[in-house]
Amino acid sequence: MTMTIAAETAAKPARARGALRRQGTLVLRLGALAMFALIMAWFAFTTRGFVSPANIFNVIEQTAVMGVLSFGMAVVLIGGGTDVQTGGIDLSIAANTGLCAAVYATLLAGGSGDLAAAAAAIGTGIAVGLLNAFAVVRLGILPLLATLAVMNIVAGLELTVTENQVIGANSTVTQLIATGRFLGLSVLAWIFILFSALMTWAIHYSRIGLRLYAVGGHPEAARAAGINVGAYVAGTYAFSGFCAGFAAILLVARLSASTTATGQLLLAILAAALLGTVFSRRFVPTAGGTILSTLFIGFLANGFQLSNVSYYWVNGVQGVLILMVVAVTTFAKPQGK
């Protein structure tokens, strides 16, 4: 498949546009980055307070939950390949976060200890992830379908736990996460920075990360090289489940409650993880791309808030900008799909 496309590109007559494209590849490859910088610059010049350190760290804080979830999704995309229909995807991650948040908040509200509640939340997340892993790896169900079914199950379970109510929760740990500061930065910002650093190391500088790319890019070759492909793919879903549990704790801490609308985060998470792929040369998810796109989406929302744009417009302008960034970058790609 890859070979056909490569051969096809080579066989394509070099039109003027093709030549131009080759010359401009380096510039256009950075197109997404340039767009990102341009939009940030526009906000910086037009919106008061946008570039103040307080605001920047405020955005990083707000982005922490999304960042953790985007990494969960990105890892699944790396391990499963980014094919639209058959590649890796975890549609259940947002619903899973909702269920974990419900479990965490319910246990805290019921008087459980911090450690027990956190363990239960992360345990729930990993359990759901393992169910996805079982469905995808053991049963061989398409990830899109398997995680869609699990999403329904998990969203239903969340509703039965919460009865569609907001559950308030407070503890020393949630207080610490929500209001604690260390070296001038809030705990949430620290968590996002440390988590991002750890993920960057794991994805790009560790053996596991290298093998994961091999598994996603060419499973047959990876298998031939002696990698246990099934275990790696299963691991990505378990990890995405873990991310759901971890993000749930941060979410409950930030809001002092579990909310009922967590499932709606799915599209934003997908957007962040997929947008991240345009920041890389080979259009695969990377740690840097994921961090950038998550921050991009976070800063966009923040910029609109500060410039008093009605929230009706926010989604739409985000959509337009995502399309523009992707279009500019995709132009550098040698072949359409």
Partner: peptide
């Protein structure tokens, strides 16, 4: 147009239109 002219992947193109469509309706 997004998919064939601008060569955006179907997933991202239609996701973008989903966001924009929601906004247009709210407005």
């Amino acid at each position: 147009i997004l998919i064939t002219r601008l060569r955006i992947s179907p997933f991202l193109a239609t996701l973008g239109i989903l966001f924009i469509g929601q906004s247009v309706q709210k407005i």
